[in-house]
Simulated assay, not measured.
Amino acid sequence: MSTAAADRVALVTGGNRGIGRAIAERLVADGYRVAVTARSGSGPANTLTVTADVTDGASLDEAVRTVEAELGPVTTVVANAGITKDTLLMRMSDDDFSAVVDTNLGGAFRTVKRAIKSMIKARRGRIILVSSVSGLFGVAGQANYSASKAGLVGFARAITRELGGRGITANVVAPGFIESDMTAELDDATQATYRKQIPAGRYGSPEEIAAVVSWLASDEAAYISGAVIPVDGGLGMGH
């Protein structure tokens, strides 16, 4: 990075496990001062963990205040926290739909809104939203999840229109099937079926997502904003 990463503070929501944890670890390795939000548990070594729920604006207010008091003004935010409540549309309750959209899309809005104040003042910032191939490709049984993840694309592009002139970028990373506790629990036949859909013939790793986030957060990506970068082995290409 052309500017010292050590002068930069990154906030990663849902950074205590899975993709969020890998992102936090990568940013620490890049030299950032890193904070993670978690509803329970803690982030990786050398990160500051703040307890927060992205559906609760007051908890995010307190989290951002704590991060900026202990680490400095936030210059990079990675909105990663998300949930699923999968079921077929005709069986999906209103609450199942609302909860997923409020966490995955509303949570990104609440987090970014609170983090951009320091970025606007510094006239430099990176906003990275973790979406999903589901939001572009569409997945049966995930009407709520697909809608919430697709919404992040419009959100990033609206941010780009509003804040692009202030040195702030907003981009979307769209992971495909990623190695996780969830995929590990699938039986061999189901895993084989999923892999057949992926041109690369394998699942991705959380570290491969983290590598793309690392690049988008860097100075090298300063002229990229409003973009959607799929990291899915070719699964959703063309969408």
Rank of each mutant, 00 (worst) to 15 (best):
M1A: 14
M1V: 08
M1E: 12
M1L: 09
S2E: 11
A4T: 13
A6I: 03
A6H: 04
A6R: 07
D7Q: 12
D7W: 02
D7H: 03
R8C: 00
R8K: 13
R8L: 00
V9W: 10
V12C: 09
V12T: 12
G15I: 00
G15C: 05
G15H: 00
N16P: 03
N16A: 15
N16G: 15
N16H: 12
R17V: 02
R17E: 01
G18P: 07
G18T: 05
G18A: 09
G18L: 02
I19F: 00
G20E: 11
R21L: 02
A22T: 00
A22P: 01
I23F: 07
I23M: 06
I23Y: 08
A24R: 00
A24G: 06
A24K: 00
E25N: 00
E25S: 02
R26K: 12
L27I: 10
V28G: 14
A29R: 05
A29S: 10
G31N: 06
Y32W: 03
Y32I: 05
R33F: 01
R33C: 09
R33A: 14
V34D: 08
A35W: 05
A35G: 11
A35H: 09
V36K: 04
V36T: 11
R39V: 04
R39N: 04
R39T: 08
G41W: 02
G43A: 02
A45Y: 08
A45E: 14
N46E: 12
N46C: 06
N46V: 03
T47W: 02
L48A: 08
L48N: 06
L48H: 10
T49F: 00
T49Y: 02
V50H: 06
T51E: 07
A52G: 01
A52I: 01
A52D: 01
A52K: 03
V54Q: 07
T55R: 15
T55M: 13
D56L: 07
D56K: 07
G57M: 13
G57Q: 14
A58D: 14
A58Y: 08
S59D: 07
L60S: 05
E62Q: 15
E62W: 06
A63P: 10
A63C: 09
V64D: 14
V64Y: 03
R65F: 09
R65I: 14
T66P: 14
T66Q: 15
T66S: 15
T66R: 15
V67I: 15
V67K: 12
E68N: 11
E68V: 12
E70V: 13
